[in-house]
Amino acid sequence: MSDLQIEVKNISFAYEKGREVLSGVSFTVAKGESVGLIGANGAGKSTLLKLLVGLNPGFSGEACLFGLPLEKQNLAEIRSRTGYVFQDSDSQLFLNTVYEDVAFAPRNYKMTEAETKERVLHALELTGIPHLSSRQIYKLSGGEKKLVSIATVLSMTPELILFDEPSIALDPKNRRNLIRILNSMDQTKVIASHDLDLILDTCGRTILLSDQTVVCDGRTEEILTDRGLLEAHGLELPLGLQRTAHRPE
C-alpha cells in the first residue's frame, strides 16, 4: 500500500452547483508508474489534475497523495513533493530569466544560494537546456518554454509530476524531444493529453476520462488500439496506429 502515490476514491467535483465536472472518479497510481490521462476536450482532465494538488477544494470523496489525505494541513507537504507542468508555459514561467524561474522553487524551499544553483543546473541538464540559463523568457520558442517549464518543476526534485497537455503547440521535432525527456525521467508521472501518440510513446497505463468519470483504466496498448471505445468517447486512434490513412471528403 505504501508505494501508492495517488489514491482517489469516488471523487466528485463541480465549479458551479449542479454542474458536475467530475463524478465518482476512482483510480490509483503506484510509485514509478507513468499514467496517461486521456479524454476529449472538456472531459475534466485539467480539473482532475488541479484537484490533486489542492487547487480545486470543495470536492467530495477521498483523495490521498503519498498516503496523506488531501486536506489543508497536508497541502504544503503534498505540493512540495509534487511537480505540476501547466498547459500554458507563459503562466508557468512568470519571472524574467530562465535561471531565476528555475530557481524560484528551491529558493522558496529555503535552500542556500549554492544549493539552489546546483539544483538549477542539474534541472537544466536533465532537460538538455543548460545553454538557456541566462536567456530571457520572452525570447524562448514554444518548445524551449515547455522544456524550461519542466526544469522549473524538476528543480523541486519532486516524486510525482503531473503534466497538463505537455505537447500542445509543439512542432514535431520539439515533440519528439519532449517524449525523449519524459521517458528519461524516473519520477511517477501522470500525463493528461488528447495527443494519443504522445501517450502511446510515454505511458504504460492509460485512464480514459469521459462523461465526468473514469470509463476505462488499463494497459495503454489495449485502450489506444480499441477504435470503438475511443470513438465512443470523442477520440480517435493514434495517428501512428491508423494503418489506412483516413481522408475525409
Binding site: 487547487l55 505540493r79 511537480g83 500554458d88 514561467l93 512568470f94 524560484f104 522553487a105 522558496n108 523541486m156
Partner: peptide, 16 residues
C-alpha cells in the same frame, strides 16, 4: 494561472 504556478512551487507571499 500565475498564482497557481507560484503556489505549487512553494510560494507563500514572501519571495525575495
Amino acid at each position: 494561472g500565475v498564482y497557481e504556478s507560484m503556489l505549487l512551487r512553494g510560494y507563500r507571499g514572501d519571495y525575495a
